[in-house]
Amino acid sequence: MSHSFQQKEFRPAAEGANTPSEKPDFIKVSNYNFWYGSSQVLFDLNIDMPKQRVTAFIGPSGCGKSTLLRNINRMNDLIDGIRHEGDVTIDGHSIYDPLLEVISLRKRIGMVFQKSNPFPKSIYENIVYSLRVAGRNKKSELDEVVERSLKGAALWDEVKDRLSESAFGLSGGQMQRLCIARAIANRPEILLMDEPCSALDPIATGKIEELIHELKKEYTIVIVTHNMQQAARVSDRTAFFYLGKLIEYDETDTIFMNPKKDQTEAYVSGRFG
């Protein structure tokens, strides 16, 4: 008599989309304070972000998460009266090194904004813009970059037959993926994303999230999002900020399932405020 099913040889294991951060730290924020004029907006931050992982910054408006994100590639340098203390390093090198050219720093970092911002040019020219500015005009190289970048942004199949058409003819979700393709054209090491899905519908949002999941195999990603479910879905680590202070930073599983601080618990469970 046999009562049992045929025994399978494998024992299924949970395949987590959020992967533990066993990768080495790549971006380190140390004892970091930041001021707009006399107003201090970031207070004594210490965060180590692992290589080729997704780190999410969450927190209510005005908590400083976008300010910190923009400081990683020194975008706030353009604002009068700013000042900082402490340091931010990428792969061990300070972004504030006086010998460092800011342009070379930004070549290592791609940026994607809340609202897609394609140039008033063709799809092709949007991708190769930064290469042309750098004087790289060899067609075979540009073609290769366009194909690689669009494939990397999961957009190639949708636009390969209309590369010479205006980027403004794309849908909102496609435009945002075009901006991601443009951001990775120079093969950066880091992608900074500032609420990249807040203007998109759920389907386009899903595509961008899938893309983030793929891109982290190659890039270190930092994402600012107001959508806590999105942070839970896409990130490996999550940092919760409030009033310019880092309240808690941990594995995303911990932040959303068993945070250590009451403020974090209140925020992720919607009881804040």
């Binding site: 949970a14 395949e15 989309a17 595509k207 999230e209």
Partner: peptide, 14 residues
Amino acid sequence: MERYFHKELEAIRS
């Protein structure tokens, strides 16, 4: 659209 985390659902089912 199949999402990457649907694999986790399949893992629970398995």
